[in-house]
Nucleic acid binder design. Structure first.
Lengths: 222, 222
DNA sequence: TCTGATTTTGAGCGATTGCTCAAACTCAGT
DNA sequence: ACTGAGTTTGAGCAATCGCTCAAAATCAGA
């Protein structure tokens, strides 16, 4: 750090619009590169070709290839997170939440969205120092999962036994593992079957909870 | 395939013992390389240095670097699977099983055992064709998880709702995700907390099952 | 001791990588 | 038209990669 990097975002006035355009093009190129040729294949030249510009611009605008890839991760994460939040907001019950999770899982696999995230996570395994940076950019996902879990456990006695924060970690890990296994051999059937089964079980639990209500509807203080 | 690879394991008689020794040394070197410098850092020269031999021997004995890495994956998988099977055999109840899982998780992280597996899985993401081969070598783990799950669900009504095979896929995925997240930033605390919590919940479920028995202890046929 | 297959070696080839750099280009402000 | 900051370019450097190959070393069987 503190190296003599290229001056960035100085006094606006010159070809700033042009620069912003190529920066966006490079980020877009990095995203498609991560999806199609993976982390190891996402070299500066590969990305620049997809962006239709010179490979030296990667270093001029982002300082290094890894910085550009992290920017791509942030970009796709923010965009997808917004979509997912809306989907989860629309879900009213636990079974519907699980159905939402299934939808998200399948959509991501189709579009290669979380594939970018997986590529960065897996690529970080072999690049010292990158792991912490990727982990930091995973925080929004953790919070998203926690709020979803909190919503799913609302009014359930399970909430007393399993704190949402802890369970959310398991949800993120499980989701990640399912995506990883599915992308390994291209077989997403086991994961989808698991989602379906979980939804059925959640539905049964809901029925059971309705049959044996234990909310403090009129409990009051002793 | 069907390329003119080096003749291997021909008529035994010459320096076969010497060859077997270097093959073993290369596999061991590949394992430590995967642990310490990751998939991307495990080049033929890096592995050969650790094995104390010439890098050309990698290609002479294994044909390619990937073949050697797959051999390393098989080696460490088989060895660890044997240890884990014994641990799980010793566990008698579901809470004990979860405690075993926690032990396995922690031991692996300490020794870097499953790190080899994770490295190969993640590395395969960026190497076309390697994914299927790694997935094939994952089968024993799937079977192991399935037998463990089957044991944990024995005599539980959950077995009627969740087939062991489907649940096992989730267990493998969850385990993988937890290891991945833990190795990203080196923080295994959230995963350990989750194991502890799961064990407690399982213990409560066991008590509940004892209080409301629903086994066919004397059901008989109608 | 000699032979011949097997194993090991060191050099090297072609390709790719991240990154640098000086020169050329673009364009708003004067 | 001129200037100068900002942007883009193409060439190139040092390092590393997987892999090949001819020659040297090793060693069991004759």
């Amino acid at each position: 750090m503190a190296k003599a990097g290229p001056r960035r975002a100085a006094a606006p006035g010159a070809g700033t619009a042009r620069a912003a355009g190529t920066k966006a093009a490079l980020v877009a190129g990095a995203i498609t590169a991560l999806r199609e040729v993976g982390f190891a294949g996402s070299s500066a030249r590969e990305i620049a070709d997809r962006a239709g510009c010179n490979q030296a611009l990667v270093f001029y605008h982002f300082g290094s290839v890894n910085e550009l890839l992290l920017a791509a991760l942030e970009d796709v994460s923010a965009r997808r997170l917004a979509v997912y939040s809306e989907i989860v907001d629309r879900a009213g019950s636990l079974p519907e939440l699980i159905e939402s999770a299934r939808t998200i899982f399948s959509e991501d696999l189709d579009a290669g969205h979380v594939a970018v995230l997986v590529e960065m996570i897996t690529g970080a395994q072999s690049t010292p120092g990158l792991g912490e940076q990727v982990a930091a950019r995973l925080a929004p996902w953790r919070e998203f999962a926690e709020s979803a879990v909190r919503k799913g456990m609302q009014g359930s006695p399970v909430a007393l036994l399993l704190p949402a924060r802890e369970l959310a970690h398991g949800v993120v890990a499980g989701f990640l593992g399912l995506e990883l296994l599915a992308s390994l051999d291209g077989d997403r059937a086991p994961a989808l079957a698991l989602f379906d089964r979980a939804r059925s079980v959640a539905g049964l639990l809901e029925l059971a909870a309705a049959a044996f209500p234990m909310n403090e509807t009129e409990g009051g203080r002793p």
